[in-house]
């Protein structure tokens, strides 16, 4: 079964996100901090008249946090009725993959392990398929 995936660089790694979950790829202009919100919320940003909650993938994976300067690339995902922008280092391409994701049997780290659906064959590379909703939910969601 063919599925489209979006290949992005996130937290220093190339990963794939199911394209069906992605609403848009945007460049964010400006970031309004949201003090005291969950640690992996980088802030808020406006996309036309919508307010996006900006998620720092790095912080969600508990690998530190990324600092965006100027224009920031982000992937817009709708989760639980709210629009989110997932900060990524770079958006590469949309490709078609065949076959279901396979289980990863290598220790990929606790953060990655929490968000990964499995691994997929993307052309010549093997990539982690990441569930954006789990990245948005962040580390707290699993503890709860």
């Amino acid at each position: 079964m063919a599925e489209l995936v979006l290949i992005v660089r996130m937290a220093g790694r190339r990963v794939a996100i199911p394209a069906s979950e992605v609403e848009a790829v945007v460049e964010l202009e400006g970031l309004t901090p949201a003090p005291r919100a969950a640690a992996h919320v980088a802030g808020l940003s406006a996309l036309r008249s919508r307010v996006l909650t900006v998620i720092d993938a790095m912080a969600s994976l508990e690998l530190g946090c990324s600092f965006g300067e100027g224009l920031i690339e982000a992937v817009v995902v709708n989760s639980g009725g709210h629009p989110y922008a997932l900060l990524v280092d770079e958006v590469e391409d949309v490709i078609e993959t065949d076959g279901a994701p396979l289980a990863v049997r290598a220790p990929i780290g606790a953060g990655w392990d929490r968000v990964a659906i499995g691994m997929i064959d993307a052309g010549s590379d093997l990539l982690l398929l990441v569930d954006p909703h789990l990245v948005i939910a962040g580390p707290a969601a699993q503890a709860a």
Binding site: A34, P35, R36, A37, A38, H40, V41, L44, S49, V51, T53, I55, G80, H82, Y84, I136, G138
Partner: peptide, 15 residues
């Protein structure tokens, strides 16, 4: 024009 904030932001209990 006020809109609801995402749960991750509302969790702060301040907004």
């Amino acid at each position: 024009v006020v809109k609801p904030a995402a749960p991750l932001v509302m969790a702060a209990g301040l907004y």
